[in-house]
Design a protein around this nucleic acid. Sequence first.
DNA 1: TTGTATGCGTTATCAT
DNA 2: ATGATAACGCATACAA
Lengths: 359, 359
Amino acid sequence: MSGRRTTIKDVASRARVSAATVSNVMLGRRGATADVADRVREAASALGYVADRSASQLRSGKTKVITVLVPNLTDPFFAGLIAALERCTQAEGFDIIVGSSNADEEVERQRLAALLSWRPSGIVVVPHRDDFPNRAVIDHLRLPYVVLDRAAPELPTDAVVADNREATAEAAAHLLDHGHRDILVVTSTFRLGNIRERFAGVVDQFAARGLPPPPSLEVGLTFEMVAERMAVWLAANKRPTAFLTVTNFVTMGVLSHLGQIGLSVPRDASLIGFDDYPWMRAATPAITAIRQDVTSLAEQTWALLRRRMEAAASPPQRLTIPCQLVVRDSVRRIGPPVDLLSSAPSRRPRRASAAASRS
Amino acid sequence: MSGRRTTIKDVASRARVSAATVSNVMLGRRGATADVADRVREAASALGYVADRSASQLRSGKTKVITVLVPNLTDPFFAGLIAALERCTQAEGFDIIVGSSNADEEVERQRLAALLSWRPSGIVVVPHRDDFPNRAVIDHLRLPYVVLDRAAPELPTDAVVADNREATAEAAAHLLDHGHRDILVVTSTFRLGNIRERFAGVVDQFAARGLPPPPSLEVGLTFEMVAERMAVWLAANKRPTAFLTVTNFVTMGVLSHLGQIGLSVPRDASLIGFDDYPWMRAATPAITAIRQDVTSLAEQTWALLRRRMEAAASPPQRLTIPCQLVVRDSVRRIGPPVDLLSSAPSRRPRRASAAASRS
DNA sequence: TTGTATGCGTTATCAT
DNA sequence: ATGATAACGCATACAA
């Protein structure tokens, strides 16, 4: 056989119809005689014909492509987001083109430009910085896009984010309810608004119980840095009875360091992590963690994007997705619930998780 | 501004040159006067022009697209592979389109067909089954492709796989050297050749020391199934002194079950896992594990694919990438090295890791 | 060095 | 219900 690809013409001649008819049958368009439609389909499958997307897109102007740009393809959170998005889009015939910015402003700009050359129907981006300066590149082309996970409150774009603040408030409540008031909030960096929100949620809950804000510690992005910063902090301060770690990586780093210095969880210290992954179930003890609803995050993003793809003119919308505290074995009760404002120590101001916007 | 996209003609008229010249300048083709080139580039950036890929591909016949199909986008191993591949291809201007087959034969076929409509320059696929019946779909279009990670030995295609057999042989040696001879090899399923290879490596090493093959146990794909199968097996058999778990998920499942029944690693049982992830470093104890070189896997795949993209006619090649045993704290010494064939118990038949093909 | 003309494979329009 | 034809935006061969 020749190296030439089978085109619509090959199918047409085999089915003894015109190219237009083949196109119509394949797209399920206009009414075609059952006989003709069968011949076309038979010819198409016999020849292994698949329409060329470049030609199709060029002519129709419709791309059926969604591009997704994340800081890092390896991070299980982003990988999960992409997987969930793929599930949404694939059902409607959209393909996904992925890119990663390596958490670098310049790379992000370049990758964005490259992805834009596809003339995608829509774009999903988890920006490197949550003020997302590179959005100018997309705005210029007037393409529909949704900012996912990292979106500064004042960002005038469609956005979908987890309810970070409410989630950590609930986690803090869980800790306080188990008698912990000496808590260290361990963060990766405060550069990201969603990380700041996570800390703010803890502060909220402490304030609600008449307590001053707990301390926080930035530990950076490698196991080594975490160990070093933790060691310094622990040498200079009284050991907290509980840790709240605001990312999966920080959770691993803190756990690793505690193990190294011979501290046992939850005997010597309790711990709640932000983000929930299967290993936390396997760990000893199993880790109590805040689960982000990745599926819901993706579904809402897709819904928002679809709306924007259909009707461009509507005010930007911001969706906040509730998280869920998964209670396992890494928090130990060390005393009665802590609540300075309540006479009855058993009172628990457990706010039901709400999807209220907080912009 | 209009909703129309800026095309090459807009740039041409603004720069007062022909479309052909714009094309040539943008592609860095034929010599152009510095003056003209500058005008073109100025116009292009002023207008925010990015060439339409559909049109470009249709005309040139060159796509600069690699499609990647994996069973599951969520699995950190596949996610890591995609990330590494993206690093390779992006450097040369190729974009990646991803798809997942959900480990289903029919879905795989459909997704493959969808990806093929892009007329990609190359395809990387981690098939659902390692005999990859769906490759007929690709063969029919004569597109270059490489099978990654799961490739039956007799598969007559380019393939890149980890040296599963050598890796587990080394792990088994490590266990035997620490006095363990009652080992249970815990597998997900034996349907996949690479899983069978992992078991075979252990058998190799046992045979090399004059020992009969150790038992193995298939535990399936959920935590619940793992717990159930493990419970049944442990009730019926003497408890092994060590476990060798052949996938990340199985490692988590076994660890979780051991924790639940109150067995401590490595005090009550030692453990080596196949696949190494950051959480294993954070776990207590840190888990000794076999690390697959994901970067190398991806690089070799890309190299093979490039070769195939350039020169179609050469016999299929199979590359085997060595793994590495990362020794941490989950294996305890319980006695002298076990080696029935050696008079000196200290002898260790440690074969240097080799990239030899074993097809 | 630059411009003109052509065609890639498909879908949309219009004619039949 | 089906066919003929044009056009999408670009890259290329060739003319100038």
